[in-house]
């Protein structure tokens, strides 16, 4: 595969707790990873590739949920992507909705907005959202800010980790490790327009095959995501363990009006007492009058 982008892909667009970040002016293409659920066979090659490229080792394989093939019950700080083996009964038959689960690289990332530590989360112009562990303070505000429940803290380092969309590989013009490993081409990577068009094409094919509700998952509540899905049952996102309408409304309320209310009370309080002092002054007690203290 030819390089999808150049090294300039890692131009900073937004930085946590730094409202006035200077953004670059280079015209960097937005990139997107597309996951075609209808083609995934659950071989877990992507899980292995992710662990290997990122030099991650799970300390212990914990018990999976009963009777599934899932590697782990959920994401871990050192296990950044997981094939969820979701099982549902449909018309008396098993419906297996294998879903590759990882950070969605939101256009409007709740994690970054929630983060109080300057520089601990960055968003690049190409759409990748990356955690910078040197600046992470371990507060886990991102855990509450993320509508996809992705960030995980390491009990040993006290820092939060997640899928980087292989920002290191992408900055060198390579595709993410999971994309490279997939034997069925269920995962594609490229410019955003190209991936959206490809996804729409697949949806048209699936619809023609009789899957009337096939759809692209690119939720608008978070401004769209840089990881998108082709879902055969697009009207039932819960089959795939994906939120139907993820939003960052709470984060916006928390980081917007609530902060302003605070600033108003703090500043108003200080200005108020200063003005009160200037107008009314202290209440001195005349200590020289000791004759009139009533018993």
């Amino acid at each position: 595969m030819s390089p999808v982008t150049s090294a300039s892909a890692l131009q900073v667009k937004a930085v946590s707790a730094s409202p006035h970040t200077a953004t670059g002016i280079k015209d960097v293409p937005e990139l997107t990873k597309m996951i075609d659920v209808s083609v995934c066979i659950g071989c877990k090659a992507c899980e292995v590739a992710c662990q290997e490229w990122n030099d991650l080792k799970v300390d212990e394989i914990r018990e999976s949920p009963p009777q599934t093939y899932q590697t782990l019950p959920d994401l871990e700080y050192n296990f950044w992507q997981l094939i969820k083996f979701n099982e549902t009964e449909r018309d008396g038959r098993l419906l297996w909705t294998l879903t590759k689960y990882q950070c969605m690289h939101c256009e409007d990332p709740g994690c970054l907005k929630a983060c109080p530590a300057p520089g601990a989360i960055v968003q690049y112009s190409n759409g990748i959202v990356d955690f910078v562990q040197e600046n992470c303070i371990g507060c886990q505000f991102c855990v509450t800010g993320c509508p996809f429940d992705v960030p995980r803290i390491s009990p040993t380092t006290g820092k939060v980790y997640k899928c980087t969309l292989c920002s290191d590989r992408v900055s060198a013009g390579l595709e993410p490790a999971c994309v490279k490993s997939c034997p069925t081409n269920a995962i594609s990577f490229g410019t955003r327009e190209k991936m959206l068009a490809q996804a729409q094409g697949r949806v048209a094919q699936l619809t023609a095959d009789g899957l009337d509700h096939a759809a692209v998952y690119n939720p608008s509540g978070v401004g769209g995501t840089h990881v998108i899905y082709v879902l055969p049952h697009g009207d039932e996102t819960s089959l795939y363990g994906l939120p139907t309408n993820p939003k960052v409304t709470f984060v916006n309320l928390w980081k917007g009006p609530l902060k302003w209310l605070g600033n108003l009370v703090f500043a108003g309080g200080i200005v108020g007492v200063v003005l009160h002092y200037l107008r009314y002054g202290p209440r001195e007690v005349d200590e020289s009058r000791h004759d009139d203290v009533k018993h």
Binding site: G262, F266, G269, V273, Y277, R283
Partner: peptide, 20 residues
Amino acid sequence: AIVAIGALIVHIYMGVFVTP
């Protein structure tokens, strides 16, 4: 926290500046 800090501003002001 906002309420508690607001109250603290008044508390310190009264104690330190208003009633010697």
